[in-house]
Simulated assay, not measured.
Amino acid sequence: MSIDMTVHATAPQPETGSEMDRRAAFCLEIARSAGAVALDGFRNRKPGFGMKGPQDFLTETDAAVERHLKARISAEFPEDGFLGEEGGGAIRSDIWVVDPIDGTANFARDIPHFCIAIAFVSNGETEIGAIYNPVLDELYFARRGHGGTRNGKPLSVARTRDFDSACVEFGWSNRKTNERYLDVLSNILERGANVRRGASGALGLAYVADGRSDAYAELHMHAWDCLAGLLMVKEAGGVVAPFLSLSGLTEGGAVLAAAPGVALGMSEATGIALEAGK
């Protein structure tokens, strides 16, 4: 996977409401069509899987879903950029950022906790995001300034304020040391929270937006893993760390998303700063 950081676009033109409406409808459509490809691969997968690196799994379905999404997007919006986990891409002012299967380790081991994650970024702002678990047929969707939904029902973060009743998710990344991970994990546990790890960061963020979890944190994530989910949490009333403003699109970075009642405590425990003014 490679990322061409050169901006391959003319001067950006502002999106009209009707253009963004079309993109939003298209995003919902391709999330479901990609989900059909993923579900077929999950039900009919062959034994075994490939490895891109330590604890970095790869299946034939990852590539198939990414090819499907890239072809659909290129046909509908040929001027847009495309950045996928498997094939990389070139950065443009208007760009679709895609994780074809987030939770590949789960997928490969017959665990139905995985998703397709799609985000549309325009001029440095995530405008649209979709996260779809095809096994459960749960489609999360958000549009900047328009709120978020799961299967059409509004999303809202939890009202939890007491860490003794909080349930949070803390993702592991091999791009940070185990010592750092364990130190942060200990900090969260000492505050009294229950900590779990589902091995799909995109779904972890969606669950914060849905109130199923009180927070999600990870010391390093790539853009395709988190952009859609960060938008959903914000649109559902949650608090997040800055990401795109800190070169997250090209380099990735730390991620924190939380219900307001536990956001400051999670920031202190993880050492991940929240967006200014939050």
Results as ranks from 00 to 15, higher is better:
E86W: 01
E86K: 11
E86Y: 10
G88C: 03
G88L: 03
G89I: 01
G89H: 05
G89R: 03
G89P: 08
I91P: 05
R92L: 00
S93Y: 15
S93V: 09
S93T: 15
D94M: 01
V97Y: 00
V97C: 00
V98F: 02
P100Y: 02
I101M: 03
I101V: 12
I101W: 00
D102P: 11
D102R: 11
D102Q: 11
G103N: 00
G103H: 02
G103V: 02
A105T: 15
A105F: 08
N106L: 08
F107R: 02
F107G: 01
R109H: 15
R109Y: 04
D110H: 14
H113Y: 14
C115E: 10
A117H: 04
I118L: 15
A119I: 13
A119L: 12
A119T: 12
F120D: 01
F120A: 06
V121F: 06
S122R: 11
G124H: 13
G124D: 13
G124R: 14
E125T: 13
E125A: 13
E125N: 09
E127Y: 09
E127W: 01
E127I: 14
N133Y: 07
P134M: 04
P134K: 04
V135W: 12
L139S: 03
G147A: 10
R150Y: 02
K153L: 13
P154G: 03
V157P: 04
V157I: 12
A158E: 02
R159M: 10
R161F: 01
S165N: 09
A166I: 00
C167A: 09
V168Q: 00
V168I: 12
E169H: 05
W172T: 07
S173Q: 06
N174A: 08
R175M: 02
N178M: 11
R180T: 14
R180I: 05
Y181F: 12
Y181C: 00
L182N: 13
L182D: 10
V184W: 01
S186C: 08
S186D: 13
N187C: 09
I188P: 08
E190V: 06
R191P: 03
G192K: 14
V195E: 02
V195Q: 06
V195I: 04
R196T: 13
G198K: 12
L203F: 07
G204P: 04
L205D: 05
A206Y: 05
G211P: 07
R212L: 11
D214E: 14
D214S: 09
D214L: 03
D214H: 15
Y216R: 01
Y216P: 01
A217G: 10
H220Q: 13
A223G: 11
A223K: 13
W224M: 07
W224E: 15
